[in-house]
Amino acid sequence: MNEEIIKIEKLSKLYENGDLSVKALDNISLSVTQGEFIAIMGASGSGKSTLMNILGCLDRPTEGYYYLEGIDVGEKTDDELSEIRNRKIGFVFQSFNLIPRTSALQNVELPMIYGKVKASERTGMALSLLEQVGLTDRAHHMPNELSGGQKQRVAIARALANCPQIILADEPTGNLDSHSSEEIMEIFARLNRKEGNTVIIVTHERDVAEFTDRIITFKDGSVIKDENLKGVS
């Protein structure tokens, strides 16, 4: 089961604003095996979010290659990328990004609607996802009626819709207290251990990173350290 699910080669991202240009990612190569649990760390502005957005097919690199399950993502059209985001990747944001005035349940159903899952099956599947994150009783609450930790759990349930292999989370605990952070990390750990999902999270906190098996550290758009916590695998 040691399949290479993500492979990036000589990836660079350049932001150009008039005369000002920022190299957010500088010639990065990296490879992730299916079932890995990875934390990405590094100072603010080091390019972590930039990388996550590219991995999540939300953004495109200026240079280099990104292979997802062996497929060159760079050659895909915008609509094909939408389909990849819908089926293969679950993205969790620091700011939750739930759709306002839309219930937790409907938020979780959304990726299934775009994935053309039948209406009759959707609700049941969404409810069982909410159950997985322990929010069955909040299914019909609106986002503004939920706590930060609850919102993030809804967001995780939503990321799990359509059963993607890869879960990407950009600072999922960034807005949460330590107790909620722990709950969230336990969910990610369970998904990785029990369901075999490949999970990549960005964090600033060492104790959050320690839930994972591998910590990649960034500085100024480059990888400066890639440590394996669980010994040889």
Binding site: N86, R87, N97, L110, Y114, R158
Partner: peptide
């Protein structure tokens, strides 16, 4: 943006 990130096409 959220809808697109969840797989909404053009």
């Amino acid at each position: 943006g959220i809808r697109k990130s969840l797989g909404a096409r053009t």
